Simulated assay, not measured.
Amino acid sequence: MWTYLRRRILQSALPLVAVILGVFVLARLTGDPSNLYLPLSATDQMREDFAAANGLDQPIWKQMADYFWGVLHLDFGTSLRTGEPASTMVMRAFPATLQLAGTTMLLAIVIAVVFGSWAALKPNGIADRIVSFFAMVAAAVPDFWVAILGIWIFAITLQWLPTSGVDAGGASWVLPIATLMLRPVGVLAQIVRGSMVTVLGQPYVKVAKSRGAGQLRIVTHHALRNAAAPALTVAGDLTVGMINGAVIVETIFGWPGIGKLMIDSILQRDFAVLQAAVLITAIAIFLLNIVIDMGYALLDPRVRPVTKQRKSMAGGAPENKKKEEAADV
């Protein structure tokens, strides 16, 4: 397992470097920060002093080298907007995104497992058709449209929920979670339904039925574990996409997470904060992918990495068998 982890880390090193390089270059294509942070009456000398104070007067290759050197020493620079360390601002906003994405994904998995299993009990039945219809609609509807529609109906028209922000009562969580949850529920319900239909047709399930096992026990103790592996992989990919896609939802609902911080940093040309936010998000996604792969390996032993000891045992078996046969002769 440790060999597998080392290999995954080495495989992800190059994409992380490419992410840092790409964000560094693209961030500077947004324009000169002095146009935002200095008054319109600023002189050329004031602009030169601003650039020198923030290291923007150096050649682009020198700025890039300094940034890479700082990242190696866990120094992500200082915010042009607040003067705080960029890493402090990112780590303050990141938990809000993780809480939102984690809560949404847990609810989506529970709902998708329930409805997908329900639909799989009678393929092509009424329940199956209803679940399939709503799953396809939920997977196809854009997040931003659902967010705007939810604000119009539940926040403005009915005035049941707040339009944005985070309150102590938890009402502000409803619309962001409902918006982010639709697509994962739709996709996972279809995956669970297909896997359950396949598993419920296996011989061991028929044996369990012949021994008098109830339908609930068959689903929870026999079918669900084997049907969970494909859904876990898809759920991991959806979680990664949710962290990336939270940029739009967090901006619409004013959620104080990493997505809103990225948008604010782009609009305000706060290079250091934007670079730190993208890099830390990329590292978090990389770690999440490793956890997903390990979880998938625990559910499905066929995908577990083969150790050297197991390989040597497998390779030595025929030789040992030949020795035993020679001794018998």
Rank of each mutant, 00 (worst) to 15 (best):
I243T: 07
Q99D: 14
L161P: 01
M242H: 06
M89G: 01
K206C: 06
V141C: 02
A112Q: 05
L14N: 14
N226Q: 10
L72W: 03
A112M: 08
P85A: 15
M262N: 09
P33W: 08
P15I: 13
L180D: 04
V197D: 06
A108M: 11
L40H: 13
N289S: 05
E48F: 07
A138Q: 01
V205Q: 11
L288M: 11
V278L: 05
I177Y: 06
Y296Q: 13
T103A: 09
D128T: 00
A18G: 14
I283T: 06
V329Y: 15
A189S: 15
L21Q: 14
A326M: 15
S312K: 07
A65M: 12
A65P: 03
D328V: 14
K62T: 12
R310L: 11
V240N: 08
I280P: 04
G194Q: 10
L38W: 11
V113F: 06
V207A: 15
Q63G: 10
D44H: 10
L26H: 08
P85E: 14
Q45I: 04
I283G: 06
A119I: 00
P123K: 02
L274Q: 03
A86I: 09
L299Q: 07
R47Y: 04
R7W: 13
A53I: 04
R211S: 12
A235T: 02
A138D: 02
G257V: 01
D128S: 00
A326N: 14
T82L: 13
G169K: 06
L238G: 07
D75T: 10
A96S: 15
P15C: 14
A86M: 07
G83A: 08
V19H: 14
K308F: 07
A189K: 05
L100S: 03
G212V: 09
T198R: 03
D293E: 01
I109Q: 08
V174K: 06
G22E: 13
N35T: 15
G83W: 07
G259R: 03
A228Q: 02
Q159R: 05
S87G: 12
G245S: 08
K321F: 13
S79C: 10
D49F: 06
V207R: 11
M89P: 00
T97P: 05
L175Y: 01
P15M: 13
R129A: 00
S41F: 12
S87W: 13
P301H: 07
A53Q: 12
I111R: 06
P176N: 08
L261E: 02
G125K: 01
Q215Y: 10
Y204D: 09
L21C: 15
G116L: 02
K206E: 15
V291A: 07
L216F: 09
P203T: 09
G259N: 04
L5R: 05
T281K: 08
V113M: 12
R8N: 15
Q45Y: 04
R47S: 12
G22R: 07
D264C: 00
K311M: 13
A171F: 05
S312C: 00
I151S: 00
T97K: 00
T82V: 11
N54W: 11
W173L: 14
A297P: 01
A223D: 04
H221R: 09
V90F: 10
V71F: 03
W160L: 08
D66K: 06
